[in-house]
Design a protein around this nucleic acid. Structure first.
Lengths: 194, 194
DNA sequence: TTTATTATGTACCAATCGGTACAATATTGT
DNA sequence: ACAATATTGTACCGATTGGTACATAATAAA
């Protein structure tokens, strides 16, 4: 191999880009701002990402999803009561730090923020969110088989219920701080996991 | 009074603007596109809306909310079983036309689409969404008082539960068409209204 | 040391953004 | 008829958008 050496790893700069896209949204995140956060110039960027901003965004969705799901699966594997883990996981949404609250779900945001033109990018986000849903579904199915969950509703339905709860809370909690009611609402929502 | 006559009513053009903002999002809706839909020129627009695009958007949120809530209250008033009405209302989300599905909730979109800079506009959307939540809460409180609802969970919590279900479904149903599971999930979610 | 190759930084691009300036136009009051 | 007034349409604005062109720089192979 020859040529001038690269000064960055794709994974690293994509991760940096996630931060900008997450707090600004796809449209509002300017190329300059992204490049500043990524620490590279336009020359490098448009050589590495021929698809420009859109390719970067799609890769950032992919990267985020993989990282997030991997961590979730690891945490689940380390837990001796997976249903309780999921409950705690959702309850923690009620008292997350303000900054995190306002950012919502990275994939859910994509679904809501992207205009009709980018429906292929939207489809990517939908597929990735479905993966997380599938993780929930698998946990529930396993718990049902092991008789650790009495609720006999189809696992896919309960999985959908949980991802929907996730999507909802990530919008709802952006409203005025109603954290006491929000917490009670979450507890009530999780009553089905019994 | 003197002067050249106005060729539009504010309410009318604001309503037209809702359509553009709803399908494009706040940022992506260009001033030109909005004006084209509104059927007026820049001269008229910036005279009537000194705050420009932002004022128009905030007024569109206001207009939408008022129209929507008024209709909702009217439908509720005309219903002899308000709890059943709410159930049907939510169930109808599962098989709405594709175009409507992809647009989500106008107020929820604002909460998710607006960047940190427009947090005052976001606050408006949050307040308006809280009004709809209050309608749900009131219906539930009344039904509890009239013993038409056995569930004794605090009405505010159930109201939050419903608005959260609303927010969730408006994100979730944008994913791949999983309508069978979505419908079952909704039925399950509405089991608490008994 | 030269050559081929790849990456980098910068200057630059047309297009579009939201918004303004202002002359032309249409009305009411005198 | 003529002013006073309010609205309209249009030409134009600087700023910013995402993206490109290209000379320069840094490496490996010959």
């Amino acid at each position: 191999m020859a040529g001038r050496p690269k000064i960055f790893e794709e994974k690293d700069v994509v991760e940096k880009a996630v931060g900008v896209f997450w707090s600004k949204g796809y449209e509002a995140a300017s190329a300059d701002e992204l490049l500043a956060a990524m620490g590279i110039g336009k020359g490098s960027f448009y050589l590495a990402f021929k698809g420009g901003k859109k390719e970067l965004y799609e890769k950032s969705l992919q990267f985020f999803s993989e990282t997030y799901d991997r961590q979730l699966l690891r945490d689940l594997a380390n837990s001796d009561d997976q249903i309780k883990f999921i409950k705690d996981f959702f309850m923690s949404l009620a008292d997350a730090p303000e900054a995190k609250i306002m950012k919502g779900c990275y994939l859910g945001n994509a679904l809501v923020q992207l205009s009709e033109i980018d429906h292929d990018t939207k489809a990517i986000a939908a597929t990735l969110l479905a993966k997380t849903e599938a993780i929930f579904t698998a946990v529930i199915r396993k718990a049902q088989q092991e008789k650790k969950l009495k609720n006999s509703t189809r696992a896919e339905v309960l999985g959908k219920y949980l991802i929907n709860l996730w999507n909802g809370v990530n919008v709802t909690r952006r409203s005025h701080p109603d954290y006491e009611v929000l917490k009670e609402m979450l507890e009530m929502s999780l009553e089905v996991l019994k």
